[in-house]
């Protein structure tokens, strides 16, 4: 595909003798919302960690925007526009929710030692702009009322939303979401999807791990399925719903979409 944003070439990751990700090759199209499904332990989150650079692959390579990023650290990959959330939220616990979100933007003038102490106007203006955006994101994700709470004190569902808020603030081109809807109430999930689709229309690409089949089938296209570390299906969501392997191994019963 000519507009590939992410390409995996035979990516593997083992833990000891156990192959959590086993020779995965796939391509994510720029501008898509790709769903990644598979049973517990299939290796989905491990694959995310390899793509984001948190884990190094034991084989294969990761290409992002046409360059091999296999040797880059997670922060270097983020700087190129590759952002991700964690399945188990990782809030900065003793910082306010607002600060959690304000941290994310890249290239803040006040993030250097000297800039922090000597800088004045530029940093203040930048901080104001960042704060304004942070409040927009918090508003949208219904987190505004906890903006001043320590992040460790908000609920599990709110932490999932905070994960999303942070990565959105960083403004990456490709966003990997690990079960963004898990633990989030249904009404909010709907809003979340709307936002994802809106961002998608504005050019962002998503790769989403999700167990909620309704979510995946309605909103993700294409769909990739993994089992035991390998890709067992790749196709459109329509194909996915009639695929015997998936019906059998994962979906259990046909869906009415």
């Amino acid at each position: 595909m000519d507009n590939a944003i992410l390409t995996l070439n035979g990516v593997s990751r083992s833990f000891g003798d156990f192959k959590a990700v086993d020779d995965v090759s796939l391509t994510i199209r720029e501008g898509s919302i790709t769903g990644l499904i598979g049973p517990n332990g299939a290796g989905k989150s491990t694959l995310f960690n390899v793509i984001a650079g948190e884990l190094s692959p034991t084989g294969g390579s990761v290409d992002f925007l046409g360059t091999n990023v296999s040797r880059l650290t997670p922060d270097e990959r983020f700087a190129l526009g590759l952002g991700r959330t964690f399945q188990i939220p990782r809030p900065f616990g003793r910082m306010s929710v607002l600060e959690n979100v304000m941290l994310a933007p890249m290239d803040q003038a006040g993030e250097t030692l000297l800039g922090a102490v000597l800088g004045k106007g530029r940093i203040r203006d930048q901080e104001e702009a960042i704060r304004k955006r942070a409040f927009e994101v918090l508003d949208f994700l219904t987190l505004r009322h906890v903006a001043d709470q320590p992040a460790a004190k908000i609920s599990g569902g709110q932490m999932k939303l905070l994960e999303l808020a942070r990565v959105l603030m960083g403004d990456p081109r490709l966003i990997l979401l690990d079960e963004p809807a898990a633990g989030v109430n249904p009404a909010l999930t709907e809003i979340l999807i709307e936002k994802i689709e809106e961002l998608n229309r504005n050019g962002k690409t998503f790769l989403i791990i999700e167990h909620d089949m309704d979510f995946v089938m309605r909103h993700c296209d294409p769909v990739i399925a993994m089992a035991e570390g390998q890709v067992v299906f790749e196709g459109t969501s329509v194909e996915a719903q009639s695929n015997p392997i998936l019906l059998d191994a994962y979906l259990g019963a046909p869906l009415d979409a």
């Binding site: 997670p74 922060d75 990782r90 900065f92 890249m106």
Partner: peptide, 9 residues
């Protein structure tokens, strides 16, 4: 959380 900070660039 160093890992989370790294994931945010």
């Amino acid at each position: 959380d160093e890992t989370a900070a790294r994931s945010l660039g």
